[in-house]
Amino acid sequence: MAKRIRKGIGARVAGFLHDWSIPRQIAGESVMSTAARSRTSETLRPRLEEADRVGTGICPFCAVGCGQLIYAKQGRPIHVEGDPRSPVNQGTLCPKGAGTLGMLLSPERVSTVLYRAPRATEWEVKPLDWAMERIAQRTKRARDETFAETLPDGRRVNHTLGLGSLGGATMDNEENYLIKKLFGGGLGMLNIENQARI
C-alpha cells in the first residue's frame, strides 16, 4: 500500500490508460483474446491448474442427465463445469448445475451424526458406529414386532407393514437395488417408495 501511494499520479494515470481494456475493444480488438488482457489478468491462473484429480460427474438435479467434470485438489472439490463431450449438454449447465460446487461446499452442510432421543428438545452429536448399531437393533425389533408370516388361514404373506422407506430418486441405481434387495427381499418390507410417484 505504501508503495502505491508513493507512485506518481502521472505514472498511475498512464499505467491505467495503458492497462484499460475498453479503448482496445472499441478499436476492434477481440474481446475473446487480447482486448481482455490487463496487468491483473496477466497474473491470474485458472484454478483448474491446481487440481490433482478430475472425474466425470452427472448433474445431481433434474433427470436430463448433464455431464459434469468435477475437479478436486487433495480430496476436496475446487471446480465443477459442464462436460463438453456430453451429447446431452455439450458443456452447458443450468443455474442449478452450475452451482453444484456451492452445494458440495455449502456451510450449511452437516457432516456428523445427529441424534434426538424421545422427548428431547435438542440434537446430540453421536458416533457413526453407535448410530449404525442402534438403527440395526431398532430395525430388527420393529420388524420382529410387526411381522406377519401368514394370514391366520395359512396363506403366506411374509411381510411387515410396520417399517417404511422413502426415497431413491436422488440416488444411484446400485443404491436403489440394495435398498429393494435388503428391505424387500431380506426383511419383507413392502412400504418402499420414492419420488417417482410424487
Binding site: A148, E149, P152
Partner: peptide, 21 residues
Amino acid sequence: GRDGRPSPDMMRLNAIISVVL
C-alpha cells in the same frame, strides 16, 4: 412383550392389520 411376556397373538394381529389396511 418388551416386559418379558412375548405374545403369540402378535402375528395374527399383524396379519389382520394387513388385511384391514
